[in-house]
């Protein structure tokens, strides 16, 4: 098991280099010159322009730029943004906020998704199942920005239960509503995955055996059916964690959460390579680690699964 984990962690190195190289190239290849975004369409003399290009290494060929980036990376220098801030400081502020948001969203998805999914699965075709289906359809067909806007308006502005936007501190309590909005689409996936697995497993032999042995219905559902139904759910959640962290652009915008999504979007639009690359680099690490955890959970949920 330990060697399996070490092997996976060792894989991080090529993955990290591959991802940063790819992203560095993608930002390099985006159309337009970052200096145009900086100047905002106002005139700029050629001399000022070339001084700026030199300052951000934009005047050098791609391989030189990337080489310089890697060289600085070794000394933990992630570069500076156009606004003159250390990228490491930007990440240090944004990632904890987004991490809280993503973890909350993941918890909401996981807990409610599994509970709703189990009930829907156990009572297939009954009213609860149908209600959940309709709710899932709404979540899928009505985009996040609309749902987020409506929830913010109703709960934040009309009912005044919470403030409509998140403060700079972005506490767990403030992030609950944004996390709910962020997790809704994934919640639909989790409900349907759980429901299907439960339906598949509830008529399985081991369930009948357990029931026949006289175990209580609760125990049969929670231990025997649920445990055997969780592999697809865990897989989905593991893959979703990273998406939640990088893809929260819309939710962060609605609730003014000072997180990674906003930072990433702005950096892409401005062509601010060091920021984009650093964010993606961290995201890749999160993905690899999340998948490692998921694989560990497989073995826990199904002891037949073994890792060398």
């Amino acid at each position: 098991m330990l060697s399996f984990m070490l092997k996976r962690i060792a894989q991080l190195i090529p993955v990290f280099i591959g991802a940063t190289l790819l992203v560095y190239f993608l930002v390099f290849a985006t159309p337009g010159n970052p200096i145009d975004a900086l100047s905002g369409g106002k005139p700029m003399s050629d001399a000022t322009r070339s001084a700026l290009e030199a300052q951000y290494n934009l005047d050098k060929p791609f391989w030189v730029q990337y080489g310089l980036y890697l060289k600085n990376l070794v000394t933990f220098d992630l570069g500076t943004s156009f606004s003159g801030q250390e990228v490491s400081a930007l990440l240090g502020r944004a990632f904890p906020v987004t991490a809280r948001l993503a973890i909350l969203a993941l918890l909401i998805e996981g807990v409610f998704g599994v509970i709703f999914g189990v009930i829907a699965g156990m009572r297939k075709g009954k009213w609860f199942d149908s209600t959940i289906l309709v709710a899932s359809l709404i979540v899928i067909a009505v985009p996040t920005f609309v749902l987020g806007f409506v929830l913010q308006f109703v709960i934040g502005v009309k009912l005044e239960w919470v403030k409509p936007t998140v403060s700079g501190a972005a506490t767990w309590g403030e992030l609950f509503l944004p996390a709910l909005v962020l997790g809704l689409v994934s919640l639909a996936y989790v409900v349907r995955l759980t429901r299907t697995s439960v339906i598949e497993n509830k008529s399985a032999d081991f369930v009948r055996t357990a029931t026949a042995k006289g175990l209580s219905r609760n125990r049969v559902v929670s231990v025997h059916i649920l445990r055997n139904s969780l592999i697809p759910v865990v897989t989905f959640l593991g893959a979703d964690l990273g998406s939640l962290m990088g893809g929260a652009i819309v939710t962060e915008g609605i609730f003014n959460v000072p997180g990674v999504g906003h930072l990433l979007y702005q950096a892409i639009q401005k062509g601010e390579t060091p920021t984009v690359v650093a964010i993606v680099g961290v995201l890749v690490i999160i993905f690899v680690v999340a998948n490692l955890i998921v694989d560990m959970l497989y073995a826990l949920l199904d002891p037949r699964i073994r890792y060398a």
Partner: peptide, 25 residues
Amino acid sequence: DAILARLGDIFFALPLILGAIIVMQ
């Protein structure tokens, strides 16, 4: 598994926004 899964990780981490803009170019 190692190659395919890690390739997946890289694609996962790429922002759709950035990727789509590039692909469409």
